[in-house]
Write a protein that binds this DNA or RNA. Sequence first.
DNA 1: ATGGCAATTAGAAATTGA
Length: 262
Amino acid sequence: MKIATYNVNGINGRLPVLLRWLAEREPDVVCLQELKAPQDKFPHAAIEAAGYQAIWHGQKSWNGVAILSRVGTPVETRRGLPDDPDESQSRYIEAAVNGVLIAGLYLPNGNPRPGPKFDYKMRWFEHLIRHAQDLIDTGIPVVLAGDFNVMPTERDVYKPERWQDDALFAPEVRAAFARLVAQGWTDALRTIHPDETIFTFWDYFRNAYGRDAGLRIDHLLLSPSLAPRLRDARVDRDVRGWEKSSDHAPVWIDLAPDKTRR
DNA sequence: ATGGCAATTAGAAATTGA
């Protein structure tokens, strides 16, 4: 089973790119972030025509997350974090799909740091960490997938020295990510590619993609009960080079079938 | 070092992103 996360940066503006990617790469489950569309402007007809069932948590102008599946109905288990610090921001959606609990998230950017936006990022992070522990404690196979807006280590930034004070890389942000992972989560992409420089985002400025001046901020974290099924993890890097593409590329994992299930 | 681009809502310019 192939599970992907993709920050589309505007689902309606990117619809041709998204549909082409779905058709070419055939992911089974997809978490989308930054829909930038209100609930009633989600292009569900086009998504359905492409063979996917979908649930989504829209928001006018900003944020917005969705879960797509072509391997059975996504059964929604929650939207928004428990005690979400700001209910008006659509950043979390969770569903059971084909025997795996999928948590799609869009963690706040947090810039500028310091400031209220950074405080909000850290508060949201704490709520996520709390909920993630609860998910692990259930023993259910879980994927936390999305745009975490965190580069976990220096290897995940093209020029780490320039990002030290940025909300995506500041010490307390990396520490929060490390605390989350230490609960027992497996960073799928880093596990499959332990020593590679590998990015998921390239900004639109200064030919960042052409220069490979990127960041690794989109992650798929596997619960201990799911990690043994990890077969592969990759970035569909070339998609970033397509016409009218998002500044993020899709990231995906391949899971072996669950032998305990029938 | 800074500014560069692209999306949103609007119907211009401001806001946000990372």
